[in-house]
Design a protein around this nucleic acid. Sequence first.
DNA 1: ACCTGAACACCGTTCAAGT
DNA 2: ACCTGAACACCGTTCAAGT
Lengths: 216, 216
Amino acid sequence: MQLTRSRVIAKAIELIEADSVETISMYRLATELGCSVMCLYHHVPSKRALLDGVADQVMSAIEVTPMPRGSWEERLEAQVRAFRTVARAYPRCVMAAVSRRRASARILRPAESALSVLADAGFGAQDAVRIMRAVLAYTMGSIVPEAGVAGSENGISARTSLRAAEFPQITHLSAELQASDPEADFEFGLGLILHGIAARQQILCTQPYGSGNTPN
Amino acid sequence: MQLTRSRVIAKAIELIEADSVETISMYRLATELGCSVMCLYHHVPSKRALLDGVADQVMSAIEVTPMPRGSWEERLEAQVRAFRTVARAYPRCVMAAVSRRRASARILRPAESALSVLADAGFGAQDAVRIMRAVLAYTMGSIVPEAGVAGSENGISARTSLRAAEFPQITHLSAELQASDPEADFEFGLGLILHGIAARQQILCTQPYGSGNTPN
DNA sequence: ACCTGAACACCGTTCAAGT
DNA sequence: ACCTGAACACCGTTCAAGT
């Protein structure tokens, strides 16, 4: 089968998610694709460019949902979940993409969509940007465990050697700490943030002449 | 000067922050320390163990502030800021530490402290753990830009080629998007989350017989 | 005890050469 | 046009050997 740039990038995404972004190499990629290492350099100028392509590919997978009918809360939630869905599907690639020196331009469309919702909700320039950044930070942070190295068994686990006297809370909450339900955890935290955003919008509505874009 | 395990780890932290966790190598580390590569293996059994040592070192730098006098909001904020301070000082090391297959045991003390505050505030087991995870996720997400590769010039930048018609919000907010004040951004988002947490505690207080640890 | 050179199996990338 | 072998300067790690 003909080797193409998109086949190379697709296989790279597959390997990064199966293993990690650190352990991917042009050698392994070539082996998986059944070609020589140097063959790859005809479709991708360098490993850096390959990772740029990976970033573009996953970022453009984020759906931009218009939803002109819903409330601004529903529309914001929908845009966050669209990002979350891709971040959950490709945690290592998304983490690598966002922590890249130059962000992929493909994130512009979902960002535009989120900012548009926040503008409709009445938020000023400064608030809109900061709210988007806060939600982005939370969503990225929520995939840090999954974005770790392969076979990651993350989180605080109550070991047998843990002295209950020194860590009473962790000992007491060991069941909850060991239980892993990333989706429920994410929804809970998103609820907290959305609550905070809604409360801030209430302030805007009751203080129409306040300087909305210079908080604190 | 005598080479010790702690000198090796200290230099590793320095190199990781100056460059990145991907580009650190035993060769570079040895060169920086003025010894041979194999010499390092007398103080650290492997590169993996070296990174474990780095994780332990940075995590144990997180101050655990008792603050028995303050409100639970103040105490929680203080514990979050203590973590944030270390995360800002060593973004790449902290990101590498948290996204590690097995979390450093040194995170247990600050975790115990945060959970203790939340228990005092009246939160149930499930809520306390989820609140801690939400705050941790947000704090980790907030350092993703800094934790990127060396010389990272991150974020959405309004390029000259950006068509205003396609991205009206991003065009309009280009000044705010290009402005970078991580500390103000972090405080803003933390305020949103703390607001959401306080609102949830209000519900607990007004519904004393509600099942506090099974939300939704 | 502490350090080291040589060696091995890997990396990214270039370059001249093959069909 | 598309592919490749050989080569280079790097990696992590082992092992037998030095002081």
